[in-house]
Each structure stands twice: as C-alpha cells, then as structure tokens.
Amino acid sequence: MDVKIKIDNLRVYFEKNEILKGIKINIAKNMITGFMGPAGSGKSTLISIINRMIDFEDNVKIEGRVLIDDINILDKEINPVSLRRRIGTVFAVPIPLQRSIFENIAYGPRLKGINDKIELFKIVSDSLKKAFLWDEVKDRLDMSATKLSGGQQQRLCLARTLVLKPEIILLDEPCSGLDPISTAKIEEALSELKKEYTIVLVSNNTKQIARISDYSAFFYLGELIEYGTTEKVFTNPSQKKTEDYISGKFG
C-alpha cells in the first residue's frame, strides 16, 4: 500500500495518564481509513496529534514520530499553521462561524490571501458541489450559516475543509449528531472524495466504518488492537476483543 501517514511508536501522556500506548500504524494514501473503538480508546487524541490541534492542550507529553510523506510533523521545525492548511479537519459537532454560508467557506482561502471575487466564487462553489451541498444552498449563499440544518452545517464544514485542497481529511465522528439521510449524504461525499484525498474517519458507528472505509483500525484503551483491510477486520478478526466490539458485545 502507498503510505501517506506513518505513525511510529507514538506515546501520549496527559498529566500522568498514558492516553496512547505506543501506536504503530501506516495510513494509506487515497483511501478511507476508519478508526473505531469505545470512548477513551484514544482515537480522537490520535487525530489531534496528526493536525497538531493538541498544541492547544496543556500538560501533554508526546513521544514517537508521526511522518507525513516521510517528514516528522512533531518536529520543532514544523510550523503547525501551515501544516493545518494541508490537513483538513471536520469535528463531531458542526461549528459554522458567525457569518454567511459563502464567507464560511471563503474564510480559509481569504487567510491565504485569495480575495478576488470571481476566483473565490469559483472555489467556493466547487467545494460546495464536492460536499454535495451546492444544490441546497446555491440560491442563498448570503444567508447566515447558523440557519442551516445540522446535516447541512456538517456538509458546510466539509466544504470549508475541501476548499483549502488539503492532502488529508480527518473526520472526528462527523455523523454522530446526524440523521440517517444526512449521514448517507456525507458518506456519499466521502466515497467520492477519497479519489483525491487521504481520509481518516473516526466513528463510533461500526456499521459506517464497514460501509465506507477501505482499512479499519480498532483501538482500545490507548492501544491499537487490530488493523487491516476492512473486509478482513470485519469478517475474520484476529483478536477476540475486535470481534466482541464489532458484534456489539461491548462498546
């Protein structure tokens, strides 16, 4: 497999607690990799390491390496701001900024210095189409984004990430608060997007992981228990814990 992210013996301590206990995992390029596991398994922490959002937490100690295209992003030389422009993140709760639909999407490009109206309109509409939201909002781009429904807001957040043309998209339980129809739309978008992007999807919903991810990883209490192709993990897991989790015996 073509490796995009290589995580090498990653240990994360929060105060005295070891949250991630020596994670080793290779994440494939242009694939969807699903992270699953019960609460407290460390999946979200792993996400926040990859996009360096963990920098905003106090009392954190990190050991090990996270290589993106063979460059260690935990290195002191790496500028987290420019890193985050290469790595898009969609959070569990959709968080539209207090501005119009258009300006929400244009926020990132404007930061990069793109202010030309025609160019902005082009990239904003492109990313809205990719997030399967364009048809629903094309006539009301000036409307406040907070007035959209939850499912629309989450696709707005996806579009806001896509507009920056990131190499990697991290989704941290993006469908946890959404209805089945909105969830289906997001999944449809993701399946389309993996052609261009490397996608990491954290989800509590094992069925969702089974549906759309190519590789699946099962985390438990800060350890990577099982990792492999989704087909293998879901049909023939090597660990008892994985089987119990997938079949719903705990979690």
């Binding site: 996009n51 959002m53 905003f56 968080i95 930061l111």
Partner: peptide, 22 residues
C-alpha cells in the same frame, strides 16, 4: 465559544488572525 477558535485554527489561521477575524 472555544469551538470558533478551534475551527479557525484548523483552517490554518494564526492566533492573531483568529483573534481579529473570529
């Protein structure tokens, strides 16, 4: 809300840009 700042940072904004724009 703290979330506004998080979104801004995740979209590649610096601290100052986040303060000024969000």
């Amino acid at each position: 809300p703290k979330n506004f700042r998080i979104v801004s940072y995740s979209l590649g904004a610096t601290k100052w840009e986040t303060v000024i724009k969000v």
